[in-house]
Design a protein around this nucleic acid. Structure first.
Lengths: 298, 298
DNA sequence: GAATAAAACGTTCAAATCGTTCATTTGTTG
DNA sequence: CAACAAATGAACGATTTGAACGTTTTATTC
């Protein structure tokens, strides 16, 4: 409980720069102990006392209490996955949001965070859910929290350019999982695309209509559950044919696509991970630029 | 995220001089915290509260983390519904978010916005959808956009106190509508409650488990569709009995509850609108305070 | 236990903010 | 219209803050 905190942790938690915090320590406003090498170590109790007495009543003193800080390292990501998983299971929205945001600030891409941290955490949660070790409501609550974290991250991205390539997509009927499609939207926007999720449980007919009316560069379809394989294959192929006819690339992915099913699908790109998707759309971007260059200088 | 804002940022955002802003702070019109060195730090929630009461417009919303162009539009509520409806149907996320924000900054409560603007807009959209005049995907896309606007608004609210009363809830199986439950969460948080949506399509058994494990003061259930009335009545009554036994009030509402069904339900409160819900929880708050006062002075 | 990456050290410096004063604008009243 | 009170915005030197830098300590990995 009285674990030593680093100046960086405390500074970030209360929203001031490390420099200021160090100055306050040196000025005696905040009791510090030093390691043998001269590094400052702060104790939680002292920090809280400082916040109370100095009149420096900070927004969220509770933040420094519980969460250990996210690092920037490559190994930090694996730990982040565990911490996110625990925060999600415990229903701690603030903590989850903070870990995700810290990772992003530390330089991890949204794509990376989704693929390696969130997806991993949900894989574990889903496993626990299938084994009956995790209550259903915890899994659902975790989805709600993760969705909020994703939307939060989304707001940190710049708005796409009005002439950026357009992508629309979502999940088909009987597939209520909103997280995958929210992730796709997020990472596409990170790549500068005008991505717009149409949501979940979309009848194929209305997706077709959306393609007709919006003529997107890419249509993405997220497949988390399949009710009837033959029906799915039929609906999907119709959709695919229509989209390609209208000049839209079709990207499909999701955990419900087995190797067996995949073999029977036509698609412009298949994504096991969001990384694959990003690679694909960036290749499209490069091709478009080449075409534009050619058109500009004939 | 909820990072403190500097007086300069806020002054530029509102479009007034730094001097005036400092004076307002010192006069107590705008809550401020001070750094250890004596510099003022403002929180976004407090700034918004000030804007709402003072009637100032926002010149540069981007400077304080608000969506671009927010806080300078019209604030008439009756027209707002039409404008939101059109923005939702057109898939214009920015515009929708902006209108909602403008309303909030202009002093309308989140509850009011949900009840009178968003719900109204979706009522019309739903009607158009049933008549076949509105494509399904447009309705779904509208949900996605509205959800983002709601989460955005949520961020503007202060975090609930750790000892605030707890409310959990969601929608039952076969009911995938996430908007109502997101609205409930939002307005409860606006009333200072620790509200946590568990999401949609929850099996009654896991809701029961959630009540057992979290012992909330209120359990809310949002009913947008009912698959089988007898099954629903059976499941609901079990849930209701369990919750009341454990000391949780049960609040139920939703467009699927007809007068006929309502007559057969037991509940602590029924909400046709979010306003009803807020009235109920605020009555609970007052009762709690009375009890506390009595306990404090015997 | 050595090698390597990450975090913290102390220092410097430009930018931001402090409190204060004062001239200007705005609104009210006789 | 003049007189007056209240609020605003600009300016000032003094102080605080945040970011940068190269160096040293700590933590992680093999």
């Amino acid at each position: 409980m009285n674990q030593p905190l680093s100046p960086k942790q405390v500074a970030q938690a209360i929203g001031v720069s490390e420099s200021s915090l160090k100055r306050w320590c040196d000025r005696g406003l905040l009791k510090t102990v030093r390691t043998a090498g001269g590094h400052r170590r702060l104790e939680l109790g002292d920090v809280l006392r400082f916040l109370r007495t100095s009149g420096h009543q900070v927004a969220r003193p509770d933040l420094i209490g519980l969460p250990p800080q996210a690092g920037q390292g490559t190994t930090a990501r694996n730990k982040a996955r565990e911490r996110v998983r625990d925060a999600l299971l415990a229903g701690d929205e603030q903590l989850c949001r903070r870990i995700v945001y810290d990772l992003y600030v530390a330089g991890h891409s949204a794509c990376d965070i989704c693929d390696n941290v969130l997806a991993g955490a949900f894989h574990e949660i889903g496993h626990g859910w299938e084994c009956g070790k995790v209550q259903v409501y915890r899994e659902r609550r975790a989805c709600e929290i993760a969705l909020k974290a994703l939307y939060d991250l989304r707001r940190a991205l710049p708005d796409p350019a009005v002439d950026a390539p357009l992508a629309i997509g979502g999940s088909l009927e009987f597939d209520p999982y909103c997280l995958p499609t929210a992730m796709v939207e997020l990472v596409l926007r990170e790549s500068g695309w005008r991505a717009m999720s149409l949501g979940t449980m979309l009848p194929p007919a209305t997706l077709a209509e959306a393609v007709r009316e919006n003529e997107p560069d890419v249509l993405w379809i997220s497949i988390s559950t399949i009710r009837s394989v033959p029906e799915f294959l039929d609906e999907y192929s119709q959709l695919h044919d229509l989209a390609t006819t209208l000049g839209s690339a079709v990207v499909v992915g999701g955990r419900a696509i087995t190797a067996e099913i995949r073999r029977q699908l036509s698609y412009s790109a298949f994504g096991d991970t969001l990384r694959h998707l990003v690679t694909f759309v960036e290749a499209m971007d490069r091709r478009t630029q080449r075409v534009r260059k050619r058109t500009a200088r004939p």
